[in-house]
Design a binder for these strands. Structure first.
Lengths: 139, 139
DNA sequence: TTGGTTTATTTTGCATACAAACTGTTTGAA
DNA sequence: TTCAAACAGTTTGTATGCAAAATAAACCAA
């Protein structure tokens, strides 16, 4: 564009780099019947113990409204279960189904492979640097 | 996550960095009644002369289906006009309205300011490096 | 010339994203 | 104790993003 070209607009570059990475992972996940976001939530559940929807949202920077819909589809497809919290009726706790637990290793490996593919052209130093720079980008 | 943590997943880091930048620009564009994507298309039109919808899509890596909807809203809001190509009736050429041309300087400046804000913590070297790394990320 | 193929765009359907409104619970201060 | 404010989630409405099908026009080989 002018005077800064498209290729110099950080918002555009971020959008397109994200799009490429997202698309790559999305295609890879097709066989599992998951989307990248759904996969992200499952991986969080492999680590957290029975978190509330709010916990998940904060950890993954996911909007409550967005998360609600994603959890609908994950529950519908038999990956997660919504359990009401016994002490606070406002809170919904999210648990994994047996099927999700069984697929854990497969799913983790799938993400690792996708990350490796996306970064295959970068040296170790470039990978570290890129990650640092991305974390430091301000809102 | 495990063994790679959330903060080490390039797909996640890209998604969140993009989200922050996008949100920042989105809030900034509210007064103009534009979204970041709509703004991107207007800036492309400031440079290209009467491009076809396909030209725009290729330049901006926008899906034809997505572009069609964005053009609907830009036309509806009085920013652009769809003109049928006289030589090839399949092609739609996109033109700016007078109002859009008048706001050109304002809009360009808005993006420059947003870019500067988003990158305010980075040195000149870091900015160059980040942009190169983003361009090299594979699909 | 014509009919099959390719091309340009739109439409439809589904999945994020997020603002704003809404529901139901819990909390805290008067 | 009680009621308004705060909190957790869901719903609704709008805007991308993309796959797949539909539509219309142009092209091209037999």
């Amino acid at each position: 564009m002018e005077p800064t070209s498209v290729d110099d607009c950080i918002i555009f570059l971020l959008a397109k780099a994200y799009q490429r990475a997202h698309q790559h992972f999305k295609r890879r996940l097709l066989i599992h019947g998951l989307t990248p976001i759904q996969h992200l939530i499952l991986e969080a559940l492999f680590v957290l113990d029975n978190p509330s929807a709010g916990d998940l949202g904060r950890l993954l920077s996911l909007d409550a409204a967005t998360l609600s819909g994603v959890l609908d589809r994950l529950a519908e497809a038999g990956w997660v279960v919504r359990n009401p919290d016994p002490d606070d009726k406002r809170i919904i706790r999210i648990g994994l189904t047996e099927r999700a637990v069984e697929k854990r290793d497969d799913l983790v490996q799938e993400r690792q492979a996708a990350n490796e593919e996306i970064l295959r052209d970068f040296s170790r130093e470039e990978r570290v640097l890129l990650k640092r720079l991305l974390k430091d980008i301000r809102g």
